[in-house]
Amino acid sequence: MHRNRMTTDDAAKRQDRFRTIIRLAATVFFNGYAAGFLKADIFTGRTKGVCVPVLNCYSCPGALGACPIGSLQSLIGNTGSRIPFYVLGSLMLFGVLFGRLLCGFLCPFGFIQDLLHKIPLKKISVPQKIDRPLRWLKYAVLLLFVVALPVFTAVKDGYTVPYFCEWICPAGTLEAGIPLVILDPGLRALIGALFDWKVVLLVLILIGSIFVPRLFCRYLCPLGAVYALFNRFALYHMELDQNKCVKCGRCSEVCPMAVDVIKDINSPECIRCGKCKAICPEGAITSDYSMCKKQPESVGEE
């Protein structure tokens, strides 16, 4: 059934409002310990042993669960076996059940980047020849900072620092570092060059997000890299009806992750935001949470 431009634009706005409500609710849910912000302290309940499916620092005063990337580095450094089965299993479970839907709908840091991108300034379209190679950077961050350096240091010294958290993670700086430093004079006295570096990196990423959608998710997020590995196999997936598709290209135009939707609808980069689905004038794009009813167009490509 053909939908005119006004109908599809309205559908896109409604879908964006719906996603904003979900992302706001998820941010509050994952950081629901309000007393932490008042007491400049972190939550210490049993839920802190459970990994949340998003990049949400466990040192955030409001955090109710554990960041899987921080936990992964911690377990690599501290368990006797050094194979972090619990976190790897949790990541695999989240990845197979939802894929990067978690990035698009639940991640608080992704939400912040989306809000910043709404600032009405001229946007930058990253040329493909720069964008495509840069996408691999997040896998390098995952392998080097989350796995290789902690493994190497743990084997050598018997203990490791969480390299990604320490040197890169902007979510940790925003959700934990800055609030705790503001609230706790004792911590404020300890800040040095490392904190300054992390604040500079955070500011650069946040400013970059105004111009390039989901800058951190696209190029740097190691959790996005993990979920990207499962995106083609995730139970939640997108479907494109080639018989309905008129190849107008509006889906790819609105995609914040610069996915070629017609060619590769279940791309590892797709965060399942649903913008393509809402904007499609022919209703050719659908999403489904189940074992496939029909052959996904993109599986096995790329």
Binding site: T44, A66, G70, T173, G177
Partner: peptide, 15 residues
């Protein structure tokens, strides 16, 4: 995981 997550991670916050 619990024992790591219930203590403020100074590395995570850049201190």
């Amino acid at each position: 995981v619990l024992s790591k997550a219930i203590r403020t991670c100074l590395e995570c916050i850049g201190i």
